[in-house]
């Protein structure tokens, strides 16, 4: 099969994406596929139109590649692609939208409020900050609505740090959210097809909200499968599957949660989780007995099984 591996792009997560892409290319070659590496740029549509791949493996992270944009183009070009479809990507990329969907579906997610910069510029939202801080309490988390890899995410220890954290978060998006800090264990529950994979627990060394810690070997310790009682693990996987369905995902996704004293709380869903050699989805697959090549083959299979949704002429 001729498979285009879409990687790179202009997003801030370009470096991670290139590493994910390179690893996927190696796996596809080992599986005997005809691999077409594509650094997603201005010639993306031209290249795909000319090369006519049988499928596209989307190894892009962040806006553009993970938010439904590239997925929409692939629908139009009628090229089957890995990972969730357009609508699910739109919902997962925007944490605010995702959290509203979760709330509507009865999935536990930490309390939050969200603003766009217009709220501050035109409607004096600053006046409401005091009330928000009282409601959510401190410490709280400030993060951009659309952004990945914890870029621009700040843990705010006291109310007077909120404006600075907002300015940071607004560097990545014109919408930000303030979220209640939930104490608990940091878990990632990946879904592949219809199945929940073994749960990964992240135990950060030092600062918990650090972009580099996520991608550098040794900065965070990961345990898979996480040491959880069977009923707790089952409950976490159930919540992950429910979230996957509520956001309309297909193929695969990674659901990040906090396991609080009173049960799991879902933070966000990554439509295109990292596939680097330190990434969590491949780790979970391995714990389930799947080698990376097998995981890639299964992802590709799920892509070709899913019908395309773009209107036909």
């Amino acid at each position: 099969m001729k498979v285009a591996v879409l990687k790179g792009g202009r997003s801030l997560e370009r470096g991670v994406s290139l590493r994910s892409g390179a690893r996927v290319e190696d796996a596809l070659e080992a599986l005997g596929h005809d691999v077409l590496p594509v650094d997603a740029g201005a010639d993306l549509v031209a290249v795909l139109t000319a090369e006519k791949p049988d499928a596209a493996f989307v190894a892009l992270h962040g806006p553009g590649g993970e938010d439904g944009t590239v997925q929409e183009l692939l629908e139009i070009l009628r090229i089957p692609y890995t990972g969730p479809g357009v609508a699910a990507c739109v919902r997962c990329m925007d944490k605010v939208l995702a959290k509203h969907e979760m709330r509507a579906a009865g999935i536990p997610t930490p309390d939050f409020v969200a603003f766009n910069d217009t709220a501050f510029r035109e409607f004096g939202a600053a006046q409401a900050l005091g009330e928000i801080e009282r409601t959510l309490g401190v410490p709280l988390i400030v993060k951009p609505a659309r952004g990945g890899s914890s870029l621009g995410v700040k843990l705010v220890a006291s109310a007077d740090e909120v404006p600075e954290a907002l300015v940071s978060a607004f560097s990545y998006d014109d919408r930000v959210l303030l979220e209640r800090r939930i104490e608990g264990r940091e878990l990632a529950a990946s879904v592949l097809g219809e199945d929940a994979l073994p749960i990964v627990e992240a135990i950060p060394k030092g600062d918990a909200f650090d972009f580099e810690a996520r991608y550098e070997i040794g900065r965070t310790e990961y345990h898979c499968p996480a040491e959880l009682d069977a009923d707790v693990a089952a409950a976490v996987q159930e919540v992950a599957l429910a979230t996957f369905r509520a956001l309309g995902c297909s193929g695969f996704a990674r659901v990040d949660l906090i396991l609080a004293a009173d049960g799991p709380q879902v933070l966000e869903v990554n439509a295109i989780p990292g596939l680097t050699d330190t990434s969590l989805l491949p780790m979970a697959a391995e714990a389930a007995g799947m080698r990376f090549e097998q995981l890639v083959e299964r992802m590709l299979e799920l892509a070709t099984e899913r019908p395309l949704t773009a209107p036909l002429a």
Partner: peptide, 14 residues
């Protein structure tokens, strides 16, 4: 000024 984090500013500058 102390409320500007230059790592975040770089994301915007890019």
């Amino acid at each position: 000024p102390p409320y500007i984090d230059t790592t975040d500013l770089l994301a915007k500058a890019l």
